[in-house]
């Protein structure tokens, strides 16, 4: 009757060990692939002009031989042209702008999404499901479509004045359209929904108002999710590129991503100073990595959950 058994000829242990080694090798290869661009960024930033143009490229430089000129020269003042008198790469200005924008949008986004998620999760009202459905559907629309009109709206609101745009105007223009997020509303609603109904009814019986319930029960219970949203949203400002470039009239109003591209190409010769470019890229990447390693758990948990639930 039996036909499926296999004689114990091979050593299954060795087979298992070999397959384990192969899996680790595969993962290590991927890990190296992921890390190499960061390494190359740092490596190039500490090379001097001669090292950079060396072929084959240097793969390693002892820390004692690192050249920091690329970093120091980022702060040299530009001698001529429209950006005369400013640092070559005004990192601290960009950082300041980015942080300001990130704080404002995060506060705004938190407030609007918490309120909306609460309404969707807990309150019964006519048309709730329809409104929710419509809002969710907008996630499928490429945001680039909105930009065309939003630019005109910002202009009409007087925040985009080519001659006299103030810092305040620029900040309003950069933040207001991003004061809410459908995605985070959806994510937060899921968390709110997991809070048992009984808590709500108990609070109602005790005469608690909806708003007080939201403040005293929902928000504290959902705090891990809210923290994740705050972290993820704050990091968004770092990669914002097109919109800040579009609605600001002065370099000094822009964000880190805008400063990165184009600043290090000599317009007359078309040559790019890769050392300076990589130094600035490293400066921009570093704060993000610090934030990431500080809040690693919250960030990864938040992203994985949002992916699953979505």
């Amino acid at each position: 009757m039996s036909e499926v058994f296999v004689k114990n000829e091979k050593s299954y242990k060795t087979k298992k060990i070999i397959s384990n080694v192969l899996v680790y090798l595969f993962l290590a290869a991927i890990a190296i692939t992921i890390l190499v661009p960061f390494y190359w960024m740092l490596l190039t930033s500490v090379k001097d002009a001669i090292m950079i143009e060396q072929t084959p490229p240097l793969l390693f430089i002892k820390p004692s031989e690192w050249k920091l000129l690329n970093y120091t020269s980022l702060f040299d003042l530009v001698q001529s042209g429209p950006r005369r008198g400013q640092p070559l790469f005004p990192f601290f200005t960009y950082m300041k702008n980015t942080i300001v924008i990130s704080i404002i949008t995060t506060i705004g986004t938190s407030i609007t999404t918490i309120l909306a998620a609460y309404a969707f999760a807990r309150l019964n009202f006519k048309g709730r499901d329809v409104v929710f459905g419509i809002i969710i559907a907008t996630m499928m629309i490429p945001g680039e479509i909105f930009i065309l009109t939003n630019f005109l709206t910002v202009n009409r609101l007087g925040w985009y004045d080519i001659m006299n745009q103030t810092y305040m105007d620029a900040i309003l223009a950069m933040t207001l359209p991003f004061m809410t997020s459908v995605f985070y509303t959806f994510y937060l609603r899921q968390t709110f929904k997991q809070i048992p109904n009984e808590l709500y009814y108990a609070a109602k019986v005790d005469g608690t108002t909806d708003f007080k319930y939201l403040l005293k029960v929902m928000i504290p219970v959902a705090m891990p999710t809210i923290v994740t949203i705050i972290i993820l949203n704050s990091m968004g400002a770092w990669s914002a590129y097109i919109w800040p470039a579009m609605v600001t009239t002065k370099d000094s109003y822009r964000l880190v991503s805008n400063g990165l591209r184009g600043a290090f190409t000599d317009t007359s010769t078309g040559r790019t100073d890769y050392g300076q470019q990589m130094a600035s890229a490293t400066l921009v990447t570093l704060p993000l990595l610090i934030v990431f390693f500080t809040f690693r758990k919250q960030i990864m948990r938040g992203v994985s959950r949002s992916g699953i639930k979505g």
Binding site: S2, V4, F5, V6, K7, N8, S11, Y12, K13, K16
Partner: peptide, 13 residues
């Protein structure tokens, strides 16, 4: 008669 001690489950039949 077969020793299956180290055999993975899919080979044991």
């Amino acid at each position: 008669e077969d020793e299956v001690s180290d055999m993975p489950p899919e080979k044991r039949g």
